[in-house]
Design a protein around this nucleic acid. Structure first.
Lengths: 235, 235
DNA sequence: GCGGGCCATATTTTCGAAGATACTTGATTG
DNA sequence: CAATCAAGTATCTTCGAAAATATGGCCCGC
């Protein structure tokens, strides 16, 4: 039996199931669909993601060194806990990585980087201009656009490792933002701040862009910390 | 068939096979038993580690975000490549993390930390005093003691994330050291340097300890870089 | 009533077979 | 001779069954 139409041209989305499960699982942890500290049972995961146990273990093993899940022997996986202390720790490193990365990025960025940044800001601004209600419904689009904007800012930084670590910390900060968002009023729009950062980057002012970005992030962290008692575990 | 002697008393090392495979695999990558860039075939791994495919995939998935192995779809896992550029990148971040961590560690360390540091140095020094030949044979012991000494130095740093990232970068630097060591004469003993760092730490001089540690690491990196053409991929 | 052991249930962990996908080889054609 | 294609081989990927381990409930002796 021919094993399907033999399409020789390699599909661009020759994606692995485990990678797909990984990204969905990660997204579900980041936006709090799985509560911090919650156990992740295979029976449940199998239904949700329509994948075998081995595939799920593979995805969870990937998230282990990133610090998003934890494992204790013979008792399975748990979503990593959160705490004000951890938030401060994550945030301090995140801000520093972002600042250093954007400084280098502005210094090294070429035309393609500029174009990517302009585009990313445009997409983010477009979503942010939508009426409040529609933005709510399409929150995952805003999330992706916001993530992509911040990625575009630092994309030209030549240190691959700094970018890697920055991305890791961004993930953790996003989780804190999203978990806290369910327990506090939506913060004010940050379009003006984003625009100012973009302008400083395009004007090739590395230090200014870095300062603006750091201030932007510090403010977010403080907002989250201010409402922390509402969603943090009481210890 | 009885599935083995049923020893009910819970062994203290109720360790997972996957975790055991993980640590052995990681060690084998770090000390170059698997060449950088080499493919990791499951048939071979299965014999070496006496584990099932699923278990091996789990371990490899863990190493993926740490940057020690890479995966391309349907072509399996490879040991991450090395390059002079990557070495410089890794080293710069590693040195910085170590320096910041030791400064904080010296500031916050208590009696238990001091004791641990003294002990770790003692063990390392004991091995380094052995005759050259015996040290060669027991190189894995030296490796563990050296790693433990550096861990003990920074152990009291209160930032869990800084310690995590430091540990990651330490792993990568160790790989560069070990891979290069096969292509150059063994460097001079660093016992005096280690001792100086320990003394500065115990004397509660954070900045001095930080400077000594940073200098110590910079020197190592330069030694490795100096011999880089001999073991780096040509392109 | 209450702690401690024991069985039944729930869950995790390991493993290799079966299905996909890539690579090799060799024959064929322009 | 180079390029193309096809069958055969090698390898990766996915999956759930079976073993190993933990959890909860029950009974018993005190």
């Amino acid at each position: 039996m021919p094993p399907r139409a033999t399409q020789k041209q390699s599909e661009p989305d020759a994606v692995l199931v485990s990678q797909d499960v990984l990204s969905r699982l990660k997204g579900d942890i980041l936006d709090g669909r799985f509560a911090p500290g919650a156990r992740l049972r295979f029976a449940e995961l199998q239904k949700t993601y329509e994948a075998g146990i081995g595939t799920l273990r593979e995805a969870l093993s990937h998230l282990l060194p990133e610090g998003l899940v934890e494992l204790d022997a013979n008792r399975g996986f748990r979503v990593a806990a959160i705490s004000a202390e951890d938030l401060r720790d994550v945030s301090a490193l995140h801000i520093e990585f972002e600042q250093r990365a954007i400084v280098e990025s502005v210094r090294h960025g070429d035309d393609a980087w500029e174009a990517g940044l302009v585009l990313a800001f445009h997409r983010l601004a477009k979503i942010e201009r939508l009426p409040r209600e529609e933005r709510r419904q399409r929150s995952s689009e805003w999330l992706a656009a916001h993530r992509e904007f911040h990625r575009a800012l630092v994309a030209a930084c030549p240190s691959r490792w700094l970018l890697r670590l920055r991305a890791q910390m961004y993930d953790h900060m996003e989780r804190y933002r999203l978990v806290s968002q369910r327990h506090r009023p939506l913060g004010p729009a940050k379009r003006a701040e984003h625009e100012a950062i973009r302008d400083a980057a395009l004007a090739r002012k590395p230090e200014q862009a870095g300062e603006l970005l750091a201030a932007h992030l510090r403010e977010t962290t403080e907002t989250v910390l201010r409402h922390a008692p509402q969603f943090m575990p009481p210890p």
